[in-house]
Write a protein that binds this DNA or RNA. Sequence first.
DNA 1: TCTATAATGACAACATGTTGTCAATTACGG
DNA 2: CCGTAATTGACAACATGTTGTCATTATAGA
Lengths: 146, 146
Amino acid sequence: MTPGGEAAGKLIYEVLRLHGRLIAAGDALMADLGLSSARWQVLGTVAASGRPLTVPDLSRILGQSRQSLQRLVNEMVGDGLLRFTDNPGHRRSPFVEPTEAGRLLHVEVEARRIPWTEGIASRLGDVDTLAAVRTLARLRAVLERG
Amino acid sequence: MTPGGEAAGKLIYEVLRLHGRLIAAGDALMADLGLSSARWQVLGTVAASGRPLTVPDLSRILGQSRQSLQRLVNEMVGDGLLRFTDNPGHRRSPFVEPTEAGRLLHVEVEARRIPWTEGIASRLGDVDTLAAVRTLARLRAVLERG
DNA sequence: TCTATAATGACAACATGTTGTCAATTACGG
DNA sequence: CCGTAATTGACAACATGTTGTCATTATAGA
């Protein structure tokens, strides 16, 4: 293994371990709202999108399987956080929109997520954070093409 | 949101998306060996460790729950890749070691993992990769303390 | 327009991770 | 040495992600 190879191995290791920590932190941050990390990410994507999104749209945006998102969305519709609305362009695939309850919950999610994220940022420093974002984005591009 | 906060949000987003891509790539790389990403990571940790490890040791090293690792290890023992050996220091918690089949498989895993990782490294560059490792390690430290 | 292809929702099976609980073992402090 | 606290394996319930399949709907090209 070259030094670069060792470094890439460590980078992969860090990503895998960080994932678990981030999910756990996100779960804890919103636990009393009854929202898991997976759910407030979906709620946020739907609520913050400028245009109405279908389930396959969500799947492409979040990089996860259509079926996973379909299940999550169906459950959140059942919980009254999201609803399906008519999609004039597609009889089969409705738009997903937040309900009023979903919108209110999203406001609270953001009220917690933003200061939490700022706290992270203050401990990392903008320059290093942006450099890491660029490197991870390049790694993701490599994996998504090859 | 400050610029740093935006950057931290992007960093988190990249880590979450990269995780899925890395698992998928690892699964594909070893698919014909019958090893998932989770399993060859366990096999590698056990095989490369200088000292014998128990299941709770593995759990601490990999940063996952004891119960997850226990299940994985039990299944891999059932598959003949790992075996439990007597732990003189603890009647209840045996050591986990690779079997001969496990060792052979680990050699093949490494023969694939190393060039794959070198390929990644060559596309990222050592300096950026190491910088990202340091930043992610700092983020992980923040999450593991607070 | 017609037809082949792609996209979509629904359902199922499965892998992997979490938390919680319980009994047994181990470790530690007085 | 003893009693208490921590660790461990086993088991269960659950959340979230994957893949595969099938029927239906959209889309695009001949």
